[in-house]
């Protein structure tokens, strides 16, 4: 899931790079050295997951698990996704360098905001926890899709129309993402609770 090169006009591209620059700077200043190996592994994980394509509809879609990354990394999701997308653009021409800022923002902003806003609900031990994690996993994907659609629409209102195919593609995908995120996070919570920075 990415926007290809040459679709968006320059102002949006520059705005994307500007926004992502701020987040990257903020994150890399704050992150402590011993968190970096984790960041690197999760960045590679995101990179790898993007290659697993599921054919739905005319185009194939793939899991992103950006909700999971948001839960595990918090603010550090920005450098993680940026690095992964950078190499996807460099090695496989997915997306491109001019749209790298926008693409990173599309993938990283929804999970970051969701985790930040819902942090209080993640702290308690109640049954809500699992539901919350599921919702974050699912809605991260869904909001990323909506954000991308919005950006495409702003760039060219005539060309891009939010179609019913969008719902047909993203809704099942979001549910799958939510389930996987919930399973992974509740498993991590059992075996290695200290790793879950979001949920303590």
């Amino acid at each position: 899931m990415h926007i290809s090169e040459g679709i968006l006009p320059a102002p949006i591209l520059i705005a994307g790079w500007g926004a992502i620059g701020v987040f990257l700077f903020w994150s890399l200043r704050k992150v402590s050295g011993d968190k970096l190996p984790r960041l690197a592994i999760l960045s590679s994980f995101f990179f790898l997951v993007s290659f697993i394509h599921i054919p739905i509809g005319p185009a194939s879609v793939h899991l992103t698990l950006n909700g999971l990354l948001g839960l595990l990394l918090g603010l550090d999701i920005f450098p993680a996704i940026f690095t992964a997308l950078f190499f996807q653009a460099l090695f496989f021409q997915y997306g491109g360098f001019t749209v790298l800022g926008v693409n990173t923002l599309v993938m990283a902003l929804p999970p970051f905001l969701l985790v930040s806003l819902l942090r209080n609900f993640l702290k308690n031990e109640s049954k809500i926890f699992k539901i919350m994690v599921f919702l974050i996993g699912g809605f991260s994907m869904l909001f990323s899709g909506l954000l991308m659609a919005l950006i495409l629409w702003i760039a060219n209102p005539k060309f891009y129309v939010l179609s019913s195919a969008f719902i047909g593609t993203y809704l099942p995908l979001s549910i799958v993402e939510g389930i996987i995120t919930a399973l992974v996070v509740s498993y991590l919570k059992k075996i290695k609770k200290e790793e879950l920075i979001c949920c303590q």
Binding site: S32, G33, A40, F47, L48, A84, F87, L90
Partner: peptide, 26 residues
């Protein structure tokens, strides 16, 4: 076509970049 060797190579680069950031921070 996408080859596995490219994917594995890219993962190596990702780990390497964060290693560099780690050393700079340290």
């Amino acid at each position: 076509k996408i080859y596995y060797r490219d994917i594995i190579g890219a993962i190596g680069y990702i780990l390497g970049i964060f290693a560099i950031i780690y050393f700079i921070k340290k």
